[in-house]
């Protein structure tokens, strides 16, 4: 095999872009864990439902996938708000294991409800067929847009959390709940907003994924594991970190595919995450928590 610059470039560009979208999937997972301390495997169920929603709206023929996504995001924001208000708040004080059982149950419900409603058939959004070609590298427009939007939204969310009053309040309530209560923050309301943002980000990630990949209900399980691993690799409570983790996984997938085989690449990725966890037990960008 001849590893020409074009071949390597193709791998890197696609790896980074697809990885960005993985990052977008992981972002919301990380946010929920950071703020509400719940390992939310159902997050991926949200992503898959968003994919179906975008798919259905688009198949009406009036709206393109991006407008459809824009339409789905506020709906999911509302659903996320309700999710926290009605369900998550009830399990907040339980152990991590209970969170896993609960959100896994929710993931089962979401996944198989999708299978019941939409069947087991594979769906695929008719793509624009437009490509961007430069120097022998060919990138599908949807992946370029998806990667870009994912990167921008990660940056936007990061800035919003770091700079705005609401973001700071959410971070404060995550870091020190009692302290936040003492200075008069409505922690429960802030948590609802945070979960709503997380579920809305699932909708965004779903919308972006729907534009270029195949859709079937069981994808939810793979995405759940993907998000979990990225977040564990990069360290919780670091939004940009989980975005970076996504990019790392994307590039590793690409490089492993090119140099070994996609299946061996999966072995490599898991082995590398394993090693990374031993070297950085709080994740790549994690902070050591005080004893």
């Amino acid at each position: 095999m001849e590893l020409t610059p074009a071949v390597i470039g193709q791998m890197l560009v696609t790896g980074v872009l697809v990885g960005s979208i993985y990052g977008a999937v992981a972002m919301g997972f990380s946010l929920i864990f950071g703020v509400v301390r719940i390992v939310n495997f159902a997050h991926a169920g949200g992503v898959v439902w968003a994919m179906y929603a975008v798919f259905l709206v688009t198949s009406g023929g009036v709206l393109g996938p991006y407008l459809a996504t824009a339409l789905v995001i506020p709906v999911f924001f509302g659903l996320g708000y309700l999710l926290q208000r009605a369900l998550m708040v009830r399990i907040a004080d339980m152990t991590e294991e209970m969170h896993i059982v609960f959100t896994f149950g929710l993931l089962l419900v979401l996944t198989y409800l999708a299978q019941f409603a939409f069947g087991h058939d594979v769906r695929f959004l008719a793509s624009s067929e437009r490509h961007l070609a430069f120097g022998g590298i060919v990138v599908q427009r949807e992946i370029l847009v998806g990667g870009g939007v994912a990167a921008l939204s990660a940056l936007g969310l990061h800035v919003a959390l770091a700079r705005t009053w609401l973001g700071k309040a959410i971070r404060a309530s995550a870091d020190n709940r009692r302290g936040a209560v003492l200075i008069g923050l409505d922690v429960r309301a802030l948590q609802r907003v945070a979960v709503a943002v997380s579920v809305a980000s699932a909708a965004l990630a779903g919308g972006l994924l729907a534009t270029f990949t195949t859709l079937y209900p069981l994808r939810a399980f793979e995405l759940a594991i993907l998000a979990f691993l990225i977040v564990v690799l990069s360290g919780i409570r670091s939004l940009l970190g989980s975005f970076g983790g996504g990019v790392i996984v994307g590039v590793l997938e690409g490089a492993g595919t090119l140099l070994l085989s996609p299946s061996l690449a999966q072995l490599g990725i898991h082995a590398l995450i394993f090693a990374a966890l031993l070297i950085r037990p709080e994740g790549l960008w994690g902070r050591k928590e005080a004893v």
Binding site: L229, V232, L264, H270, A271, L277, P281, E282, G286
Partner: peptide, 28 residues
């Protein structure tokens, strides 16, 4: 893992990755 001070969700992640590594090793 314990010498490195792995705990909580990271420990869960490590165990998951271990099983998945074995699965892909067997697949290959």
């Amino acid at each position: 893992a314990f010498r490195c001070g792995l705990r909580g969700i990271y420990f869960g992640g490590l165990t998951l990755v271990l099983a998945e590594s074995f699965r892909f090793a067997a697949i290959n």
